[in-house]
Design a protein around this nucleic acid. Structure first.
Lengths: 340, 340
DNA sequence: GCTTAAAATCGTAGCGCTACGAATGAACGC
DNA sequence: GCGTTCATTCGTAGCGCTACGATTTTAAGC
């Protein structure tokens, strides 16, 4: 019955609902926006008409008329990575329940792509914008300055930021790992990283690590994986590293996936962890509890970032966010297991 | 200079660009949509005005006026999972370069959430819709039937589908693993799965596995992890499984993360893989090449799904997709390594 | 019953853009 | 020089909805 009423994509409009319910379009609109301001009798008739016609409001028309939108743009460097994807998932859940729709953009760690995506998202008149980190092109900054959309920069902490900030210090992550390794008596270290060139945050962790180690009289060899983490390459690189620098007694990795690659290579070479080589990762991914030995790592507040980003955004949208609460350092925690 | 022109979120309109460039708004609109239909001189003046004012077109107004949108909705069960996220990433890249914007929804393996998301996305008047799998609520189906948006159902194959289909047979995945294990002389098997209740596709893989094994006279013990894969639980469950059924000589897992959990437990218990227990996963995730021993698994066409979904969608949007090419089985491949 | 305030409903005027046909300009042939 | 054609440019009428002030209905008070 309700099946073949419409030919093509011709959609049911609010006017048709109004006609069927025998009220004016304004009343239907009001019913949809503030249901308890219409009398119960009409409300019922309107709902019946909506159900019968299968009416779906036209978001674009609504957005245009109200010059607001329920869109929140989110830019992440990659969604193929459980760090950001868990933040996204949490963010999505919290914002959706407040009636917002996420528009997700994938910058692929590329500033100019970010710039393009910012423009593309702003053209939706979003209610808010979530960016990853502090690094934006000059042009992006000028576009954003022309705009009073609330902005959260997440997953980092320590710079002034454009508006709101929710994150933690990557430098501290590096420092915590270094301090732990130093405490275990290690001095000759290596840092193995993916995507070093493009990922500022991996670089910050490295700097925190290196500076802490060197301040204590140790040394750090840096090794970079080309592009995204590739397990085989990690194995080869680890092998070569240990061949060139047999004195190395601890390896810090830019993330847990890299650490898993190193760990597998150590198993293969029968290098005992942590006796021969201490090993630490970053991320506290699920599997780190069960590797042999379990992996010492850093727990970043992945889900908390999503949750607090949503909270700040909503508060800011409601106009009730004091300046002092616009910046949030969620901190990190070293998870000590048996690999170092 | 361009900084404080606008107070608040008051945006620059096309009319203002037109005034500055000394042309009519229609010409600006035309320039934006089909640049080579305006004369070079004016084109230049218009572009200059756009740059000077920092004009960003209002997507909603455009969408409303043209009653088209450049939005493509995509629903996946979870983005915290490199299977779907790689498909998403590929899909995004291909569709973005064709000028489309993805609206991603996370169903969390929940049909009623999918229903809600379908409504929410359709209210954007999307140019296309991508769903994961064939399972939709009756209500979703009726909403979709009322609508002639092109639809791709991805990540599965073997049912008629609503419109287009791009995927592979999960039943076959199970069968391939079973056949391989049988070939290696195993008869007493187990299947360890996450999210068994909600994930139809994991269930299909299980059925393919079980039916193949049983047809050859073998047995299959099923073990389910509660909710999402949790490495520790996987370890415990594996331990209990082997205690109760020491005769088991091969374990198939619903995905590689589960397999990694089982593998770690085997390392811990010093059960040799594959001599004592053969092990296989699903997904061919990156790390499977480097575990000790490397993991035999199934390679699903993660990126290909994204690519072909984009291709079919674009062809369908251009009206040039013959009925016969609407369904695509991308197949899967068993990656034989050393774990079985 | 009548007045008055409050609640419910309605009508109108856009939101910023696109589609499309009308109007103008340029280019050309004879 | 003048029509004819084609390429540009422009004006107008919406797209489907919301905001808001105007209008009608209902309820309350005496």
């Amino acid at each position: 019955m309700a099946k073949r009423r419409r030919r093509g994509s011709q959609r049911v409009t609010m006017g048709e609902v109004a006609r069927l319910a025998d009220v004016s379009p304004s009343t239907v609109s009001l019913y949809l926006r503030r249901p308890d301001e219409v009398s119960p009798g009409r409300a019922e008739k309107i709902q019946a008409a909506i159900d019968r016609l299968g009416y779906l409001p036209n978001t674009m028309a609504g957005g245009l008329a109200s010059s607001r939108s329920n869109v929140i743009g989110v830019l992440v460097p990659t969604i193929t990575n459980s760090f950001f994807s868990e933040t996204l998932e949490t963010l999505e859940r919290h914002l959706r329940s407040a009636g917002y729709q996420l528009l997700i953009g994938n910058t692929e760690f590329d500033d100019s792509r970010e710039e393009e995506l910012i423009r593309s998202i702003l053209s939706w008149n979003p209610a808010g914008l979530v960016l990853t980190g502090f690094l934006h092109t000059r042009k992006s900054l000028s576009v954003l300055a022309n705009n009073d959309t609330p902005i959260v920069e997440m997953w980092d902490y320590g710079q002034p930021g454009l508006d709101m900030v929710v994150g933690f210090s990557h430098y501290t992550c590096g420092r915590l790992v270094a301090e732990h390794m130093l405490r275990q008596g290690r001095r000759r270290m290596a840092f193995v990283s993916t995507n070093f060139e493009r990922d500022v945050r991996a670089r910050d962790r490295y700097h925190g690590f290196r500076e802490t180690v060197e301040a204590a009289g140790g040394t750090v060899e840096l090794r970079e994986l080309s592009g995204r983490s590739h397990a085989e390459e990690t194995g080869r690189l680890t092998h070569a590293l240990m061949q060139d620098h047999p004195e190395i007694e601890a390896i810090a990795c830019s993330n847990d996936m890299v650490a898993l690659g190193v760990l597998c290579e150590c198993q293969r070479q029968k290098w005992d962890i942590p006796d021969r080589i201490a090993l630490a990762g970053f991320g506290n991914l699920d599997f780190t509890t069960s590797t042999v030995p379990p992996l010492t790592t850093i727990e970043p507040p992945r889900r908390e970032i999503g949750q607090h980003t949503a909270r700040l955004l909503l508060a800011s949208l409601a106009g009730e966010l004091p300046e002092a609460e616009k910046r949030l350092d969620l901190g990190v925690r070293l998870v000590e297991r048996e690999s170092v």
